[in-house]
């Protein structure tokens, strides 16, 4: 790794509807962590059609220098424009690490950007750890059952960071960072963003639920969705959701998968029934207040993020829970 004064740790900020996405502050937290080991300055790059206000927000919160690039074609994300602008800008910063959020946007342009720069590319990063060989990035593999530690051996490393893996910077920095605003005239050549279709209405109920009962492939068969529905009725303001495979198989109405490309939920209680807990699913539910996981697989990664773990078949334990609930309800009535 090159260690000149000009080198930088670069954070690519992410906007959602012209708001700074919270994962941007998680990237900044990781940049600080890396900065304690590799003493390179941090530079934040922000791309968009309207960048002044978000650039100010990031500079105030982090105290880092922000390079905001305005491009009129970025009202909606366009991977080609992103890569072309970053391809122009990044060489002058001599980046050692380029930190990008592992969102559908980050995964769209990050690996291609790594190829353009001859960089290493490590996706799904959830920790920065010291090993005998040096400082490494950790990531989950095999449905979250193992963690691999990767050592970059290229001059530059593109790091895609799993949302929620690092605690984001909070509050304001002592001194606001300097902001530079540039105008980019890069135009889309071979791909044009046409618009974004909005979520289906049924997603709204999921977002507002106090309790989410979610089904995974481990419930066994479609007929067992009835049990999931019954379990959810024990709780007021509850909703039924599922993992992506369950939605793909048509066991649950499409539009309700919880995860990276589905809904992100943070209910008071999340009950995962027969869900393995792969990274894309966990991204969507890890902010839940209290997590109960039911799975027959003692090594299911969902157990690593749960408060309470039940190693059972969902179709056997759920009727037992419902029966016990009814029994207690009747006892309370009689008392």
């Amino acid at each position: 790794m090159k260690g000149t004064m000009e080198s930088h740790i670069v954070v690519i900020a992410e906007l959602r509807g012209n708001q700074v996405s919270p994962v941007t502050y998680e990237l900044l937290a990781l940049a600080e962590e890396i900065g304690q080991v590799h003493s390179f300055p941090v530079k934040v790059i922000l791309l968009g059609a309207d960048v002044e206000r978000p650039a100010r927000e990031i500079a105030d919160a982090s105290g880092n220098a922000v390079l905001a690039i305005r491009n009129c074609h970025l009202q909606i994300y366009n991977g080609e424009v992103y890569k072309d602008i970053l391809g122009d800008v990044l060489p002058s910063l001599d980046p050692v690490f380029i930190l990008i959020a592992q969102t559908t946007q980050g995964l769209d342009y990050g690996p291609g950007l790594a190829v353009r720069f001859g960089s290493a590319c490590i996706t799904g990063v959830n920790a920065f750890v010291e090993k005998e060989e040096g400082f490494c990035f950790s990531r989950a593999a095999f449905n979250g059952k193992i963690v691999t530690h990767l050592l970059p051996v290229a001059k530059t490393t593109v790091v895609l960071v799993q949302p929620g893996a690092f605690e984001g910077l909070a509050g304001k920095a002592q001194n606001s960072g300097p902001i530079e605003i540039r105008i980019s005239n890069v135009e889309p050549k071979r791909m044009r963003a046409m618009g974004v279709a909005q979520s289906r209405p049924e997603d709204a109920g999921l977002a507002g639920a106090d309790v989410v009962v979610a089904a995974g492939r481990g419930i066994g068969e479609k007929e067992n969705m009835t049990l999931i529905q019954q379990l959810s009725t024990l709780f007021p303001r509850s909703a039924v959701a599922g993992s992506r495979p369950v939605c793909d198989m048509g066991w649950l109405q499409y539009g309700r998968p919880v995860g990276l490309t589905g809904a992100t939920v943070s209910p008071r209680l999340y009950i995962a029934c027969g869900i393995s807990g792969a990274m894309p699913h966990q991204v969507g539910m890890q902010g839940s207040g209290f997590i109960v996981a039911i799975s027959t697989d003692s090594r299911a990664s969902i157990f690593n993020t749960a408060d309470v773990c039940i190693q059972e078949y969902p179709k056997r334990i759920i009727p037992a829970v419902i029966e016990e609930f009814e029994k207690r309800k009747n006892q309370r009535r009689e008392a």
Binding site: R16, I76, Y77, T103, T104, Q105, A193, M194, G195, V196, A197, Q198, S199, R200, D203, G255, P257, L260, T261, G262, A263, T264
Partner: peptide, 8 residues
């Protein structure tokens, strides 16, 4: 993309 939305 996120939130069940679809980019065209």
């Amino acid at each position: 993309i996120e939130g069940g939305q679809r980019a065209e």
